[in-house]
Design a protein around this nucleic acid. Structure first.
Lengths: 230, 230
DNA sequence: GGGCTTGCGATTGTCGACAATCTTAGCGAC
DNA sequence: GTCGCTAAGATTGTCGACAATCGCAAGCCC
């Protein structure tokens, strides 16, 4: 028997639809609160309505879309308040994970983390906050991997996809990337020293900055809700 | 128009199936790893196979059920290692919540918490660990409510339903309930004082005990896996 | 007997059709 | 003009049927 790997397929088609939809939503290719009509999505994704339906149920459970009986699904609009809740949870979990990482970390891991930070430093020098943000995500994910807690990892990934809409607010603040870079250095230093308490503290400092930035951006923008007519 | 509240119904029937199944699984009415056959469940719950299917997808996303393409669904067996992961996450989140609770708590809340602890003390005196356990859950949920972070609350509820199978191990250890009771007192004391750091520390102490108990129960029981034949 | 193939029953995955429900546009009364 | 009502269209919820796939047991070859 030729072990043909079924091209990433071999999955029920609902999973394919789920992944594409998830990518599309968290990638911002839908407006917040936009209606998600099953028939349209089915045409769009080239799958049956059954598959779309399954995908929507999953995304609902995951918190990315909200479904009401007989009224269909919409991409869920996470409020600013909720974004703060999410960020608080994220701080907690990242603290836990970096603490575990401090005891698990290998020299090879440290090399990779160093490479990530160096790459980030380049982006800062080039004034490329978006590239920085991507590398930032990679840095954190590396820590998740090292810490070896799949449960927390999964939760964090979910939370991140829910709050992605607020991400740019925390990146684009002037001078933020430079600060962020130094905070990352502190985390790496603690990990290198195998200092669990230090790593946790450094992570708390780092992410508390993110929370503050987010809070600031929310409170300072008391703009009228632009989605209301009139 | 008479506003007839559709008797808790008005939901798509998939939600009803989901709730019942969830209750049944986390209530231990299925064996771990037991196959969940759609047609059987449909008969059992008096709903169509479509609804069962939707429920299973949700439970899969939630981690209570594991589904493989063309191979059906089983109640997910969470490994001991995973139970520890979950408990670690739980400690993190409960710390966060009790910290927030310390700043939100009202006198009325304190009265209710006091009542819960008093009721627990009674159960301890009566030697009723199961009743104690229920009240324990209530105490923690009260704190969740006070802390007012829906996101963390939801995650904690999910985690709890996943690890419920290991709960009895942490309750039945001799002398544990007495210790647990005093730890609860410490938490309440910190909350009464509005001491966020103290509350967090007390919660950490409390739940670390649970983690230790769980670890101890796992490591000490190097029993042969009873579910293997022979 | 051991290992492989084959066939069958059991179960899941998908689709189309239809019923139930919501939403919107049109119409008429005031 | 606007309010309320009605009908049509759009969309979701549910079911039954069928195809695809799996697991198992019987049979076959060596």
């Amino acid at each position: 028997m030729i072990a043909v790997q079924p091209a990433g397929d071999g999955l029920e088609s609902g999973v394919a639809a789920y992944r594409q939809l998830r990518e599309a939503i968290s990638g911002g290719r839908f407006q917040p609160n936009e209606r998600l009509i099953e028939a349209d999505l089915a045409r769009m994704l080239q799958v049956g309505r059954t598959a779309v339906r399954a995908a929507l149920v999953r995304l609902d459970q995951e918190g990315l879309v909200s479904r009401e009986p007989h009224r269909g699904a919409r991409v869920r609009l996470v409020s600013e308040r909720e974004a703060l809740e999410i960020e608080e949870v994220r701080v907690s979990l990242e603290q836990l994970l970096v603490r575990r990482a401090a005891t698990n970390v290998t020299p090879a891991d440290l090399v990779k983390l160093r490479q990530s930070i160096d790459a980030m430093r380049e982006r800062v020098a080039q004034g490329d906050p978006l590239g920085y943000s991507e590398l930032n995500a990679r840095f954190h994910q590396q820590i998740w991997d090292i810490s070896n807690n799949q449960t927390a990892r999964r939760l964090l990934a979910n939370l991140k996809s829910q709050s992605i809409r607020f991400q740019y607010r925390t990146i684009l603040r002037p001078g933020r990337t430079e600060e962020s870079l130094e905070e990352h250095e502190a985390i790496l230093a603690a990990l290198t020293a195998g200092d669990a308490d230090g790593a946790e503290a450094a992570m708390r400092t780092h992410l508390s900055q993110v929370v503050s930035t987010l809070k600031w951006s929310i409170e300072s923008q008391t703009r009228p809700p632009s989605w209301l007519p009139g």
